[in-house]
């Protein structure tokens, strides 16, 4: 018999093995292809829908594309994360894994890392398709301008088209879309450590997603008014602390119209997102570590 190496409290190899396995599991599940295909279809179909819009076609395309990426990356993370723990427990694979020298921390981290890898891959793939579609559309617009624009306005028209096409200022926006999906995925993992069913986890996560998008408005309304009751202010402050303001990650609209995202804001939102991811993961670990399996 070959002797196994001495046990270490934390092993990146074990975490990587779990992450790789989770990624493989999710890639081989048809739901991934379905969602991705749907996202690609939405982006592709936007080429045709812009024919009916009075706005700049490239701006509409960017708007639709980034919006679709935001929704589908979130949905992908939500559906994949919600089933991770319940399925493993139902199939008793969880017992088999934890009966090996694997700590619950490593297990949870490995599983979440697998989902993170999947979401990142999906966003990357959608970005490539999005940039490709935008590039093709840009060429079509340039060709049309060459034919229809007068020599006096051609230079200006071409400049307007190029500035509305895929540019470097889109990348921070896409990164924030990714970060938002990762954050929501970690939140779903936290919920699944206390929930008894995947359906409950999904529904609760959707509700929190909605709260996260409107809580900024509610907070401003409640805290802004002098007549707001103290209890309501405390409640609002509590909600603001527990749930992240997901509206902060929605910079798509500004970027779509060509406004560059200030880097200070980008780093602030990124830092906030990473902070919530860390807090949610540590909370999930504390709950999972004390859970009777």
């Amino acid at each position: 018999m070959t002797a196994a190496p001495k046990h270490s409290l934390f092993s990146s190899r074990r975490v990587l093995a779990l992450a790789h396995n989770t990624l493989l599991e999710l890639i081989r599940l048809k739901v991934f292809y379905f969602i991705l295909l749907f996202a690609l279809l939405i982006i592709g179909s936007s080429i045709f829908t812009i024919q009916f819009s009075f706005q700049n076609p490239l701006q509409v395309l960017k708007d639709v594309g980034l919006g679709a990426m935001s929704i589908f990356s979130w949905l992908l993370g939500l559906l994949c994360t919600a089933g991770l723990l319940p399925k493993d427990q139902e199939d008793r694979t969880l017992y088999t894994i934890l009966a090996k020298p694997v700590s619950r921390f490593e297990y949870l981290l490995g599983k979440l890392s697998g989902v993170f890898l999947l979401i990142t891959l999906a966003v990357l793939l959608m970005s490539v398709v999005f940039a490709g579609v935008l590039g093709i559309r840009e060429q079509q617009e340039i060709a049309a301008a060459m034919q229809s624009s007068s020599p006096q306005t051609l230079a200006l028209d071409l400049e307007a088209i190029r500035s509305a096409a895929f540019q470097a200022n889109l990348i921070p926006g896409i990164l924030l879309i990714l970060l938002k999906a990762l954050l929501c995925s970690t939140l779903t993992l936290l919920l699944s450590t206390v929930a008894t069913s995947s359906v409950f986890t999904i529904l609760t996560s959707v509700v929190i997603y909605l709260i996260g998008h409107v809580q900024g408005i509610a907070r401003e309304a409640w805290l802004g008014g002098s007549e707001t009751a103290a209890a309501l202010k405390v409640l609002s402050a509590g909600v603001s602390l527990v749930f992240p303001d997901l509206q902060l990650f929605n910079v798509v609209d500004e970027i779509a119209v060509g406004t560059a995202l200030p880097m200070a804001l980008f780093w602030q939102v990124s830092g906030l997102g990473l902070f919530y991811i860390l807090v949610y993961f540590l909370l999930a670990q504390v709950i999972f570590a004390s859970r009777e399996l």
Partner: peptide
């Protein structure tokens, strides 16, 4: 997969 979890 299980072998990797055992450190192999």
């Amino acid at each position: 997969f299980f072998g990797k979890l055992c450190g192999l």
